[in-house]
Design a protein around this nucleic acid. Sequence first.
DNA 1: TTGAAAGCGCTAACAT
DNA 2: ATGTTAGCGCTTTCAA
Lengths: 355, 355
Amino acid sequence: MVTRKEVARKAGVSVSVVSRAMNNSGYVEAEKKKRILEVADKLGYYPHPVAEALQKRRTKQLLFFCKDLRNSFYIDMYQGMVEAAGKRDYMMVFNGSMDFENIRNTMIDGIIMPNEVITRHYLDTVGKNYRLPVVSASYGSPVRFSRSVPRVEIDMEKVMELAVKELRANGHRRLALAMPYPFRCTDVRRLAFCSLMEEVYGDRMKDYYIGIHREDLAGDSRILAFLEEEERENGMRLLEEDFFGKGELAAQLFVERKIDATAVVAFNDEFALGMCKRFHALGIRVPRDISLIGIDGSSARKYQDPCLTSVGLFPEKQGAKCVNVLLDMLEGKKVKYISGSPVKLVKGESVKKLD
Amino acid sequence: MVTRKEVARKAGVSVSVVSRAMNNSGYVEAEKKKRILEVADKLGYYPHPVAEALQKRRTKQLLFFCKDLRNSFYIDMYQGMVEAAGKRDYMMVFNGSMDFENIRNTMIDGIIMPNEVITRHYLDTVGKNYRLPVVSASYGSPVRFSRSVPRVEIDMEKVMELAVKELRANGHRRLALAMPYPFRCTDVRRLAFCSLMEEVYGDRMKDYYIGIHREDLAGDSRILAFLEEEERENGMRLLEEDFFGKGELAAQLFVERKIDATAVVAFNDEFALGMCKRFHALGIRVPRDISLIGIDGSSARKYQDPCLTSVGLFPEKQGAKCVNVLLDMLEGKKVKYISGSPVKLVKGESVKKLD
DNA sequence: TTGAAAGCGCTAACAT
DNA sequence: ATGTTAGCGCTTTCAA
């Protein structure tokens, strides 16, 4: 392996001059610098990233702590991170294992957490005595952190507002919400929906809520396998979920319960796609018989025929912002405790205009 | 930051004893070892991964050099890698930039290339004077490497055989092949299909081949944008392709050319899904009016209604094998120059039984 | 069984 | 402007 020492010897200078020449830092005679660079090039010299990292105490790597890269939402987020990191000469690494302990023997300068729940869990365990900078992707959950961690937040209330507004603009009055969780969950979407629809439904709210309970899953072994894993994690929903499968189930429940809504807001696009498929299997066509709106604006929307209308969350932007906030922290800049990430209605053809 | 030095001081021993205690290597008095471990624990000591990497010349990181993590095939491959690597105490990192030069300042012990073309390109440029171990995912392309690099190969001829066999078993005789490339391409699928269908079609082969040419794309700005990027890469197809969009176009061409095939083998699942969507838009239903078989066995199959029949390529297995071969190399074990990765028909409902 | 010391490849303070 | 030197945190001879 070619080192600076060798370049220095061949160029007839000391290693520190080589260092300076390479990094354009400090003084070095123009003529000499040119020669050094030439020698380095001829020798095929490249700086050793590990040695540099040890010395500078900077690995130039950031961790995205996410278990479920199969979820297209997280993939998009990751993609955004990769791009933002690349622009600032950083690299994203990804840890497929849920093992917090593992973080400590990973060569990273900072961590991006995929949501508030995982962030809290981390801060309460390993993060307690490992003070690497952390940024959390965030969705308006009222989770408190044991130490100050910047959040890059998607305003889920606004998201729900956009969805409901779009449906109302198309003449829909009786809207249902379909979620992978029971009614008692405190998911921001659920809360926002309830507050938006309260004046319409009053105490009949639950009639227009489709939630997946453990019991509902009894017949579906594919989903059960996932749930069992969830259980192991003492109730926390950290693991990958089969949203598509749960969506199928939700459509089934919608029909069985003979809900008289003309439109459904679905938890996310995967969930909506699952609902679509089951609806069609039951002879109900979207949007002819029922309108459907998803949340995410994911690229999977296109698989739907006709294309799914959705509220776009632009996870790439959120991911990119997470990276930029984290790198700002590393550079010692002041960062905002909460920064927002944009959302926007993404039109498809799954909402019918009622007259 | 707590270092070994500090642990040593508090435990009243030297750093080398601490080192030995931590690594269970060399001699250290049982009593002392226990005390050292206790002290380390109390101090919240964790080994510094970068220092360890510098000393051991092992970063415990592997690079998957893949530009397009949005392609579900590569995601699945990556997932398989992450799992296999985790089991052997390694971490996968992923580089979203196509810049080979970048590889040299990344802290890795080895590289996995996503296909033969990129591997060759790498070996002919940066890889020439950077002799990090490389493993290539491979698909039976007759590409020669300038140095010996193990391949983990999916047998595309067999894949095509399985697809054709399935269609024939269901009574189909006139099969079409739909690809994102012109007929003159040397893609293994195309070659395999031709040799399988030669005795049926003779010189009418081209009548049953749907290929996407540059001209065909003229009307579709979404696809054009991708193509332009491809051009920049001097003709090599290294960048992400909009297979779905090209599939839609292929369905269009199929109809316009009034091809009288009863079944189509599609380049991959994304492509097949695109075809499905356009077919439906044109009033042609799968499998009622036309049968369709994909290649990949990807999870995106489920979005199709009815579910797409496909030849499963199990990219997670291929990815996992790539990792294991690479780590075997690093451990100095002998590895096979070519190892296979399994394929299997994955039944859906997109193939109709003809009588 | 232990500890001193050299060194992995690099940077940076300091003296020249 | 240049070179010497002392580390970064760890492993691993080697002498005691």
